[in-house]
Design a binder for these strands. Sequence first.
DNA 1: CCAAGCATGAAGGAGCCA
DNA 2: TGGCTCCTTCATGCTTGG
Length: 624
Amino acid sequence: MAQDSAGDDDYVDWNTDDDFEIDNFQSSPVHSRAETLVGVAVTTSSLSSPIETTDLVQMGFSDEIFATLFDMGFPVEMIARAIKEAGPNADTSVIIDTISKYSSENEAGSSKSKTIDHFLAMGFDEEKVINAIHEHGEENMDQIANTLLSCAEPKKLTEVKEEDDIDWSDDEINYSETLLSDDEKEPNSSNLNRNQIRSLVKMGFSELEASLAVERCGENVDIAELTDFLCAAQMAREFTEFHTEPEEQRPRHDVKKRRLESKREPSSSVDDEPVRLPNPMIGFGLPNEPREETRILPELARGPPFFYYENVALAPKGVWETISRHLYEIPPEFVDSKYFCAAARKRGYIHNLPISNRFQLQPPPKYTINEAFPLTKKWWPDWDKRTKLNCILTVTGSAQLTNRIRSALEPYSGEPEPPKNVQRFVIDQCRRWNLVWVGKNKAAPLEPDEMENLLGFPRNHTRGGGMSRTERYKSLGNSFQVDTVAYHLSVLKPIFPDGINVLSLFTGIGGGEVALHRLQIRMKLVVSVEISKVNRNILKDFWEQTNQTGVLIEFSDVQTLTNDTIEDLMKKYGGFDLVIGGSPCNNLAGGNRVSRVGLGGDQSSLFFEYCRILEVVRGRMRRY
DNA sequence: CCAAGCATGAAGGAGCCA
DNA sequence: TGGCTCCTTCATGCTTGG
């Protein structure tokens, strides 16, 4: 009866359009990577030069305040100029005001002068900068940088060369080739460098930036540290552009100061306070007992667009610190879904959503195993004290395991309860494999539809679409817990009464979409990116079965979703209100014995694609 | 060829106690 | 505070069976 709103007009599978998916990383993204390069270059050239700091200290200016301002991303020259104008005894906030005056002067002037300033800050000759800008156009900062690097011998860069043993003076120099030529000197480290550079380029950084980052961070650093370096520089630059009231900057400020201090202490490998998991793991409070908590987000992090990122809470040490640094220093909200349903699911969420006036999905799910699966009550032995299930994983116990448990218990059927050692064996297996009692002495793994129930999905959500039972388990094990996510997203409902445009990365089986649907928040547009074809089918089926009136567009690979494509989509549909997604946890999850290598792993490094795409969306939304 | 079974530990937090 | 035990963990890759 309802109109077939999910017909051809409303569903676009752009994966069939090969031309649209051609990887375009090498081209210059709109939110120019070269701007990041500038930030990096300022950092490198300035830190390697002792001139500025000593001059400033001689002026009676606190080295610490200088470091603070510098780490906020202000160019050294600008800081020095502001200090001269404001005087050596001036307060930090006065200096910031003075600098911001320069910034606004620059913005009031042509953007070309801003571009010139960037490259002047890198130590290039003004005349050459102007010529290069004239040659390539001010927007092609990568090319400008290449041209500048390939000609002459800029003063400060020569200093870098002396310190870092980089030969900048070769004619027609290509930075990557310079690194290649290092092969003869140190083949192993250079191969490592090249691999790292390739990885960074794959993530969307320019080769030049990548090379610079590898050089600056030294050898034997992992990919996460390199991307951290690059993103920190970008954030510092953006902070300069969008800085706000000094009072609001303070928390972020302190973190960055710590980072700078740790840079001065090379022996320290951990540069943030370690993230501690809260106990109880309830985030900003639960539906029935919300905490009176408020939080102040950095101005840079505030929406719209809103974003919502998720991953496993129990990641290797340092991972959440890195993730948080890449997402505007917002601390993760750790929540165990055992407070929302009958199964545990310890996850960290980083988002810029409001946290007051959240509300719970109705009807609320069952909180205990017995309530969720009443038929198991009859068979549940007294000595199995579990009331909550453990985390739903991607693999389950086998039918053989059920048989082994039955064999272990049957000899004691006539007795009140089996011996303690048998109990122990059975309980261990039940906990390990999340078994429930479905018959006499019969403990079996959850069925896929039972998992769907626990996770807040409609029954048979993952059924069909060409999915095998094994694949259903895998997709469900990788999914959101819908009630938990919906509780967080519920604040969007009053903000967007007419509906929202959603960019959904690593969509999986559509946990975010189901949450929004159950919240009755209209999805005017969902651009979904999901690598698994069967998962894409599931979302498409859900879209059709729930008679969505919005538009669904599906992509397969975040790595081939170019910045230009995102911009085009935003132009066509009026931007995105929410960027939601949980990046792969394969290399973070405790169950992985083969490749639990952290954010640098093959799958988990896609987190940086989330950051890239989020930045594109945020950059574009600022211009609306 | 596909689906299911199964062996493969370590990381790191929680709780306890001296 | 440190040492100890206990517990949990969005998994991978090989083998087996149909």
